[in-house]
């Protein structure tokens, strides 16, 4: 049976087509603005092509993410937390927590024994846009996102940027560059700031289990962040390949229910 999950995020659309329990196709593209629904539909058709199945061949399509209501071609929509929980169980049979770190939002979902969601946490506004902030900082420092993902916080060598506010952090970073601090040290400081913020949101309600937590979302591709976060939080996150597709995969799984 084929199902599809469409995650329309603030920055990117992610689509996953599942054939039973295997990924038949996965695609991503920038969301854009008001046209994101149409763009998601075009991407969906492309994904179908890749998966070698037609629209009729799909049992059910569920949309999720910030733009879930724009996917009027989908059969329905679900909230991201439910998708995250389903995805976590897919990647780890007895997962008790799902953490998703995206361009805009960070979520922590507690999963009960039966797989149902028991608690949810979303980041507070001061922590909005961590993924975006990392991307923009990388661009400013003239690193690719892959390059900045290889610069650990230790490279900062004691230099720090404010870890309470991303706006202050950016100003601090510019000031560091202004006084001649090398750019990789600044990158390390920004990564450290990111990890400190993430560590705090993990502690908002239920603290995720050390051995039963799955991490997804675009930022989970950043080794420097995930290594440092593991060290700081003490959680040994299970990070799947292509973690940015986690929520979309979860939606596709729920579409099979």
């Amino acid at each position: 049976m084929y199902t599809a999950g469409i995650d329309i995020g603030l920055e990117n659309i992610k689509i996953v087509i599942l054939k039973d329990a295997s990924v038949a196709a996965s695609l991503t593209a920038p969301s854009g603005g008001k046209e994101r629904g149409k763009r998601a539909e075009a991407l969906y058709d492309e994904a179908l092509l890749r998966a070698g199945v037609s629209r009729n061949g799909i049992h059910r399509t569920l949309a999720t993410g910030a733009g879930k209501f724009d996917a009027d071609f989908a059969d329905g929509n679900i909230v991201e937390e439910i998708a995250d929980a389903a995805a976590a169980r897919y990647f780890l049979k007895d997962a008790s927590a799902a953490v998703d770190i995206g361009a805009d939002q960070t979520r922590v979902v507690s999963i009960g024994a039966d797989g149902a969601v028991t608690e949810t946490v979303r980041n507070q506004k001061c922590m909005a846009g961590l993924g975006l902030a990392l991307e923009y900082m990388a661009e400013r420092l003239d690193f690719s996102i892959e390059e900045i993902s290889l610069i650990p916080p230790e490279r900062a060598e004691g230099v720090t940027v404010n870890d309470g506010c991303p706006v202050f952090a950016e100003l601090d970073a510019l000031e560091l560059l202004n006084i001649g601090v090398p750019r990789d040290a600044v990158a390390g400081a920004v990564t450290r700031m990111t990890v400190v913020r993430l560590n705090s949101v993990l502690r908002d309600k239920d603290f995720p289990d050390r051995n039963r937590t799955v991490l997804t979302g675009g930022v989970a591709k950043n080794r420097a962040v995930t290594d440092a976060l593991k060290a700081l939080s003490g959680i040994d996150f299970v990070i799947p390949e292509s973690p940015e597709y986690g929520t979309a995969l979860g939606a596709a799984l729920k579409a099979a229910d």
């Binding site: 909230v79 969601v117 949810t120 979303r122």
Partner: peptide, 20 residues
């Protein structure tokens, strides 16, 4: 200002639906 009303509705959806 800064209420982010649509964001609030989003959270309400997540709160309700994640409770079934």
């Amino acid at each position: 200002t800064d209420m982010d009303e649509h964001g609030f509705l989003d959270r309400i959806d997540a709160w309700m639906e994640s409770q079934g």
